[in-house]
Amino acid sequence: MSDEINIQELPIEELFELMQEDLYDGLADEVLEEVNEALARGLQPFEVLTQGLVAGMDIVGKDFRDGTLFVPEVLMAASSMKSGMTVLRPLLIETGAPKMGTAVIGTVKGDIHDIGQNLVSMMWEGAGFEVTNIGINNSVEDYMAAIEAHNPEILGLSALLTTTMPYMKTVIDALNEAGIRERLTVLVGGAPLSDAFAEEIGADAYCRDAAVAVDTAKKFMQIRNEAA
């Protein structure tokens, strides 16, 4: 085996494999180079997304859950994914490729703790979702405006404080009143939450961490796609 590789000479399977490895190791520039190489060979953007980047992030997610990877490593992988997406996203839209899903996420009114939801955003993006992170301290009106603007399938509500948790129910009640609750999958997250709380306030699911948030969002997208 030589000590050098020329990615232009790699068979396509090996190129994807390399893309996944470089994503795993958080090498943004290399991932970008490999995405460009795959596109130059005439591969469909959707193929590059699913067989290269998303497949790579699946491994990252799995190793994170198994305790092999640490949070900073997952972040690096997700940000490499993001750099590949800067090239892929416009092409995906152009080619009318199927979407992995669209999500809006934000912390509820009174809550400024957004580190957790920022991780979820990164991980969702890593899984190929289009994510709009509307930041902290969001009122019902803020959520409504974001839903109007981005038409997401998934709405993520985040809270760290027990005192702001009830506002999640206020948001869901407002969705019901506006008659748009049924077309959204509402996922809630935050340290003091539980499955029981999610059920009680009428959310679709509680996600205990960023890895679970990815799995749950994918699962609901699959259900939606099968129903469609």
Binding site: D3, E4, I5, I7, Q8, E30, E33, I59
Partner: peptide
């Protein structure tokens, strides 16, 4: 496009 072959951290034994 030519670069040095490196070993991915993937598959390394857990620390």
């Amino acid at each position: 496009m030519v670069r040095e072959r490196r070993h991915s951290r993937r598959g390394r034994p857990s620390p």
